[in-house]
Amino acid sequence: MGQDEFLFLLMGLKWTVALSVVGFVCGCIAGLGIALARTCGSRPVETVVSGYIAIFQGTPLLMQLFVVYYGLALIGIKVDAWVAVSVGLTLHASAYLGEIWRGAIEAVPKGQTEASKALALSYVSRMKDVVLPQALRISLPATIGFLVQLIKGTSLASIVGFTELTRAGNIISNQIFQPLTVFGIVGILYFIMCCPLTIYGAHLERKFAASAR
């Protein structure tokens, strides 16, 4: 494998990073909404939202990308593959992060909410100043774990036809007939992105576990 091929892989890598960042950032914003709606106390809202979460956690990401990709075209929105994939990843991430953060919000001791209510804090302040900062800390290892899952998930964009790292690998592999070398290198590139996050997540988990003792 030559330099040109490697540069082509790096171009793919750039798109993998872009998809991951967009999916994660937008997923965080939407996921926060999901988590708050899931814990809002209104029965119908909570039921609808938990249905949303169940659907995304109970179906393959690949199918979600297909449905969003063809669904957007169906309602007449003509978009590039990468926009469709970004929307798909965002919805996927919002459901998973929403569920992670719901757990974290519920893990904050009830007394915290009661104390803020007793101090006459509004819902916004109660969440923003008291509950969410604590919940965020609790959820950090799981959130990072999901980010790794999302980065790996972006590889499925290749099946929809978008040229990110894995599809770049496919293309090169078909050109030079060295699939093991190419996919080995592709794997290493993913590993370089994911492994530091995994290690950091595990480190945080240990740290929190130690301080909880």
């Binding site: 790996k152 996919f183 993913y190 590993f191």
Partner: peptide, 22 residues
């Protein structure tokens, strides 16, 4: 464990698909 957890399944299945015949 770390190699598997930090790479996509799609890449793994391609790799295995090409590696097994070898």
């Amino acid at each position: 464990v770390e190699i598997i957890r930090n790479t996509p399944f799609l890449v793994q299945i391609f790799f295995i698909y090409f590696a097994l015949p070898l």
